[in-house]
Design a protein around this nucleic acid. Structure first.
Lengths: 195, 195
DNA sequence: GTCTATAAAAAGATAGAC
DNA sequence: GTCTATCTTTTTATAGAC
């Protein structure tokens, strides 16, 4: 569509973030220019600076929003059952949430290097907070005697790496439903930690 | 040291690759300039083109060399025992090999997007070949009745994601030896797939 | 709020002297 | 084989008209 000058603040703002998200995920932060983002939105490059002070802030906002959304969603989802039930819920939640947001997940893992040191620390703190949620479940299950994990911190990292890995190969058009994938991973997680 | 013009072909060539490896791993392919690589080597930017036709080839050569080295090392390491022993060996090999080459592993996972389509296909074929080594072990163990995996392909991806994940958190100066890490991961892998 | 135009810096790659 | 110099393009970001 042919575009002319005008005010579209409420529409353009989210579209800038969406375009940045898609392009950063596909080509990488450093490989994407502000002109490419502008072209995707349908404005000129200069207009982007009405919505972000610079390119770095665009990346940081995307990552912070993702991590905060993840933590909020988990807070809403987690329950008070026994450790096994909590672990089952974490595993299934993690898979669903990540499969539904492939671009956000991708940049949040791949573009950490491109954050300024201050921004990096803030994102890392959020990630650490999320990891600690799983670690607490493992430690509680250990105390209850239902889990047998030699090193809760290491097992936390191993489980998160495993379940996050679905995002690298899962395709919606493939042969498996999300539920089938959740079942397979839950079986592995459960066996890996059970006493 | 002050440098002057001269011939150093056999020395400079490997140094260019080493500098590119280190810088790509630290900052990302797209974020590193040929001038930065040259500065790290201690030559001028123009001199790099005696060793590579372009920046893309530099990345591709690093990734191909890594993947070929991984496959060769596994060929030398793998054994003919039963499926459990082969899986144990794969797990321990994978962890050691990857922990010894953090930079190579990092770019081989993170910079796939920055390969040209032809180069990408070649690297993907090598990666797929490596994954198939694990998948064969799982299928053999399934046939032998010693493993219980609902979906060998999915379990392959899950196990590889889990063990590769050590590279994101392991630090040589940390509290755990490589052997201790291997033990923890092997216990988890074994339990996750055992009948 | 968006445009056009541009500043200022940096990029990949090449030419030719030594 | 390396240097200096340069071509050409592209980059982030800003200024000012509308």
């Amino acid at each position: 569509m042919a575009r002319t000058a005008g005010s579209h603040s409420e529409i353009t703002g989210p579209r800038v973030l969406q375009a940045a998200l898609t392009l950063f995920a596909r080509h990488g932060f450093a490989a994407v220019s502000m002109r490419q983002i502008a072209a995707e939105v349908g404005v000129q490059a200069g207009a982007l600076y009405n919505y972000t002070p610079d390119k770095q802030t665009l990346l940081f906002d995307l990552m912070r929003t993702h991590m905060e959304g993840l933590l909020e969603a988990w807070e809403a989802e987690k329950s008070d059952g026994d450790a096994t039930e909590r672990l089952r819920r974490f595993t299934r939640f993690h898979i669903t949430y990540h499969l539904e947001r492939p671009d956000e997940v991708f940049i949040s893992y791949m573009e950490l290097r491109n954050l300024t040191p201050e921004n990096f620390r803030e994102i890392e703190a959020l990630r650490r907070k999320y990891e600690t949620e799983l670690e607490k479940i493992l430690r509680d299950g250990l105390a209850e005697g239902v889990f047998n994990v030699p090193d809760p911190r290491v097992v936390t990292m191993a489980v998160i790496a495993m379940v996050t890995g679905v995002t690298t190969w899962y395709r919606t058009a493939g042969r498996l439903s999300v539920e089938a994938v959740q079942d397979i991973y839950w079986q592995m997680v459960q066996r890996a930690v059970s006493a």
